[in-house]
């Protein structure tokens, strides 16, 4: 029963998120509303972490396999990808390095600044 209850709560919040998505005319997936709502309910102590933890940890753990079906859909969209394959690789490599550098450097500067302020 414990896992069923946990999964039930997660599904309920997910469902509310999808209903919000239905009414709000923004291109934001329902899962994001659900995530935000769940975080808010946890902070407000409406839902206790113990009421959802194990089921949530399990779902997050098995998350990678959930991406397989969509990615295999590449078979269907190969026609669209093939002509831009080289560009795709360039975007992939460049942006990943750029994002890593910008995020890491910004965080380093901020943290060192705060450390100095404390001293």
């Amino acid at each position: 029963m414990k896992y069923l209850k946990q999964f039930g709560i997660i599904l309920l919040v997910t469902c509310i998120g999808e209903i919000i998505r239905y009414f709000v005319p923004l291109p934001i997936p329902g899962s994001i509303y659900g995530l935000t709502l769940m975080f808010g309910l946890l902070c407000a102590h409406v839902i206790r972490v113990e009421d959802v933890k194990e089921a949530a940890v399990f779902l997050i753990e098995i998350m990678p396999v959930m991406f397989i079906p969509a990615a295999v859909g590449l078979i269907e969209s190969w026609g669209e990808l093939q002509p831009i394959l080289i560009q795709t690789v360039i975007i992939l490599v460049l942006t990943t390095v750029i994002v890593m550098a910008v995020t890491g450097k910004t965080a380093m500067i901020m943290i060192e600044k705060e450390k100095k302020n404390h001293e």
């Binding site: 919040v13 899962s31 940890v57 779902l59 997050i60 098995i62 991406f67």
Partner: peptide, 10 residues
Amino acid sequence: LTPATVSLAI
């Protein structure tokens, strides 16, 4: 995938 994403709140 949708309930798993919601679970990231935990």
